[in-house]
Design a protein around this nucleic acid. Structure first.
Lengths: 269, 269
DNA sequence: TCAAAAGTGTTGAGTCTACACCCATGT
DNA sequence: ACATGGGTGTAGACTCAACACTTTTGA
């Protein structure tokens, strides 16, 4: 069955209203390998993609996601679909935008709600990569003037998309495709918009903190912040600014070959 | 026909998926009356509400809004519905959140997309108030500790709702009803969330500017900013900060009984 | 003439950046 | 011992709130 046949047989008449879906960019802060027992590993941002098994966009890589069920909210849908399709629990999800353009999906009208999640604790990548259908891709998202480049890399796969940053009304950016590889549907554009929404919001430290575990060191916090903003921060200054958002505990992390780090919690309010 | 009969006769079986809707808080900066030809009028924030003519929530006040059609995006739907129901053109609309809780609407499952619009030029209120079905309400939205009060006033109508600010994940607040009057559906909660999203975003001056006309004076800009943030700003400081976001023209506004004000435009990028 | 907004200058308080420096630890 | 991250101090640059002051207008 070709994609064309598939689409012809798709009974669009049963749908006289849009379908409602959630798509989610699950990001992880991954540590690069280091052979120095003391030195902190470099951190890279990765995104979790799923290879589509069916038409449309068969064999293309896509963000996990799917249609909303009657007994769940959109946030619950995003979490459920991610677990079903990848085995990864995205823990908490942040909304990043709604995509309601008319021709997003060749089957029928679909309104997609985009979310982003950042996993700040080490993820066991092997357990999620079964059958080659689910993979983590290193993310590089850069901008030179008008055009933005989204580069996704995993093993021997590279997906590179050139986009234009178009609208910036109300502080939110949208992107349009120019050239290069594409993810399924408009997922390249959704991923780009979600990354820029995440970066914009992460300027406020409290947003970043919502992705951290209950107890964390200031260095963990800083690594997440640096990975999201994609720039290094001076530890001395970071810790002073972060102090306004956290509360000390009397627990420490030891065993890293240097002075123990105090654990902190999110400050309420 | 009572509300109960109406709901019993509503054929819910025709819907095996959620309906998709947009609801919009149209705000206007309204000038209070002044008898001094020179003195600038006080500015008040008002919201446009529609009295429901049908079940459910017959005779309750509601935000304008309605169901998405197949040939429009959600933004277009919000604009179309506002014009249809009130005769007011909201010009440009900012998304403020999605409400996908299961029991928002007694008829069937409805996913509502909230928008806000701020009208910065004087609106002819009389032309929109036909048949008493559409009215502007002065808005007061205050918070003391845990509980928030939303007070809406128009002529002899006062709608006062007490709510609790509940979740603040990722920088966005949600509200839950405690006591007092209610708008139709969960529109009190949507309005509260939209107002706080607007205030949060308006910290960035460029968001406020997206609601201004193509040419504006710095005083106009400041009045909008003050109405949204609900606090006075020092003109000298405001103008220096705003300078980064605007470009001069060589046009002036005269006739106000004082030195002419230069017109500015939004600075691109 | 004069009150009001338009617009500029200045001062002192506070914040942020960069860097120097000491502390505590596991190998 | 020592490299490394944990953590504090501080000088200079920068930003910002407050207020004083001058300019220009219409009635």
């Amino acid at each position: 069955m070709t994609e064309k046949e598939f689409l012809q047989e798709y009974d669009i008449s049963q749908f006289d209203r849009p379908s409602v879906a959630a798509d989610i960019a699950v990001l992880a802060i991954r540590s690069e390998y280091t052979d120095n027992y003391r030195r902190e590993a470099n951190k890279k941002l990765s995104v979790l993609l799923v290879k589509r098994g069916d038409y449309p966009y068969k064999d293309k890589w896509a963000l996990p996601g799917g249609f909303l069920q009657q007994n769940e909210t959109l946030e619950e849908c995003a979490v459920r679909k991610t677990i079903e399709k990848t085995g990864v629990d995205p823990v908490s999800v942040m909304p990043t935008g709604v995509f309601s353009e008319l021709d997003r999906d060749p089957r029928t009208r679909v309104i997609s709600h985009a979310f982003v999640s950042v996993l700040t604790e080490d993820v066991d990548i092997k357990s999620t990569g079964e059958a080659g259908e689910t993979k983590w891709f290193d993310v590089e998202f850069t901008r030179e003037g008008e055009s933005c480049t989204l580069r996704l890399r995993s093993d021997n796969i590279t997906i590179e998309t050139i986009m234009k940053r178009s609208s910036h009304k109300f502080g939110n950016y949208r992107y349009t495709y120019i050239s290069g590889d594409k993810l399924a549907f408009d997922h390249s554009l959704i991923l780009a918009a979600s990354l820029s929404a995440l970066r914009k919001n992460a300027d406020n430290y409290s947003v970043t903190m919502d992705f951290l575990p209950d107890k964390f060191t200031l260095n963990q916090f800083q690594c997440v912040q640096e990975a999201i903003l994609n720039k290094p921060l001076l530890a001395a200054n970071f810790r002073r600014k972060a102090a306004a958002f956290v509360e000390e505990t009397d627990e420490y992390i030891t065993g890293a070959g240097h002075r123990p780090a105090k654990l902190y919690t999110r400050k309420e309010k």
